[in-house]
Nucleic acid binder design. Structure first.
Lengths: 247, 247
DNA sequence: TGCTTCTGTGAGATCCTCTAACGAAACAAT
DNA sequence: ATTGTTTCGTTAGAGGATCTCACAGAAGCA
């Protein structure tokens, strides 16, 4: 029973090690995380830490899943706390804020993977939960917002003219032919998230949302915009608006 | 004069080293590139390679700039070889093809950077040249294509209704308010590319293009789509279409 | 009190990057 | 052809990394 003390201590030192590792990550990147250095910073010798983590890789993996979980929870909370009409924007901004506040953790999740690396099953679970959140945020985007313009299809011919939605549920934006093709292609895919699987159209919206937000955020946190003389948040808001507008 | 032999030999072994390094990169990631292992694979001892590269970092940097240059040239050629109406799609597809064919090199350019790492000035030059290519591809997107639909603004009020373009040059898509705001914000930014600097609207289009294509491509080459049961190229084409449509 | 389990230490194996000193080869010039 | 110079590759080694192993304490349990 009193072994609980030991377990508490064990968990505590594990957390301390991960915390020190995060500090190292922030200032030297993934490659700068050293078991030896962490141990030294904690006041013990190198091999002692191997009582708590089987390998440097396990520590790294735990850092990743922790960050993943944290991000997923942050998004879920942002969606839950927002009014239905604001959910989408709240989710997107929460994502960006999280990434900007701790770039290294974002890159830990979405950065360059090691070729051989196999993500633990826990990771895919978290990813599925996050996809659920994105679904929820996306599904509430056109509803009762009143801010979306109903764009009537133009008369010009061509592949990009907006066509009537195939057979989807609620009253949403009309889709272009290519959007409809993507929706059809995604109809059978999945399952991507727990709970009921949405239709292809919503999956397409979610996928667009994910990739576009990641595009802006990842280039931003990697510093690819530095020296270009503009505020990335303006670009982000523009992309956000395009997503809302485009359904 | 006959020192040319030596120089040729020198260049040759440098190239061989980089080639071996690329092989290591493909199978073990950036961290798996080892000067010792490269030398051994070339039939010499470790320290010998330090006659050719001052440090492991210099080798890495050279790998990055090589990849960057290669990518930039590939895009430029794709744009140059395509008919004006196809330039945009040609550029985008060339980008994706290049990335899919050699994911590790793409991630070398756009992957997680080391926090302390300062890109050599040569890199920013190449980036500027590539931005020029993107500008060229984007500027020819609405012209004479005939495939873009002229979307008439809906009657519904709200921030997302399309408004008349501010004062831009050619006959292009009308902009939403947020797009116009982004264009205004980008008007003074730069210079991003050699040659004449385009207006804010074109800069906005280029930025959207860059971030959206990168969003799809990076998640794809990182394997984030694996197991989701859909073809990423369909998503890519849908995004491409949205970019063409949206100006 | 003893017995067991957990925790930390020091030594060491094996890798890595990178420096330094030395032999050998190739080039240059008399 | 012989001499001098530059370059190349070697071995030796410093210093650091991950990780294993055997051993000394400490903590928990009887």
């Amino acid at each position: 029973m009193a072994t609980a003390r030991r377990e508490r201590y064990r968990k505590q030192t594990r957390e301390e090690a991960k915390s020190v590792a995060l500090a190292q990550l922030a200032e030297s990147g993934t490659a700068g995380i050293s078991v030896n250095a962490i141990a030294k910073a904690m006041g013990m010798t190198g091999p002692a830490l191997y009582r708590y983590f089987a390998s440097r890789d396990e520590l790294l993996t735990e850092l990743i899943t922790d960050a993943y979980r944290d991000l997923a929870e942050t998004l879920a909370r942002a969606v839950a706390d927002a009014a239905p009409a604001d959910r989408f924007r709240a989710m997107a901004r929460a994502l960006r804020d999280w990434a900007k506040r701790q770039p290294d953790r974002y890159l830990l999740i979405y950065g360059t993977p090691v070729p051989g690396y196999q993500a633990p099953p826990e990771t895919t679970e978290i990813a599925a939960g996050m996809m659920r959140t994105i679904f929820d945020a996306c599904s509430s985007v056109g509803e009762s917002g009143g801010a979306t313009a109903s764009v009537t299809p133009g008369v010009t011919a061509g592949a990009a003219a907006r066509v009537a939605p195939s057979a989807t549920a609620s009253g949403e934006q009309p889709l272009t032919e290519v959007e409809a093709a993507l929706a059809r292609h995604l109809e059978g895919a999945g399952p991507w998230a727990p709970g009921e699987e949405p239709g292809g159209e919503l999956k397409g919206r979610a996928l667009r949302t994910w990739t576009r937000l990641h595009g802006v955020i990842s280039l931003d946190v990697q510093g690819q915009f530095t020296g270009m003389g503009f505020d990335p948040s303006v670009l982000f808001e523009a992309e956000l608006d395009a997503l809302v507008r485009g359904g």
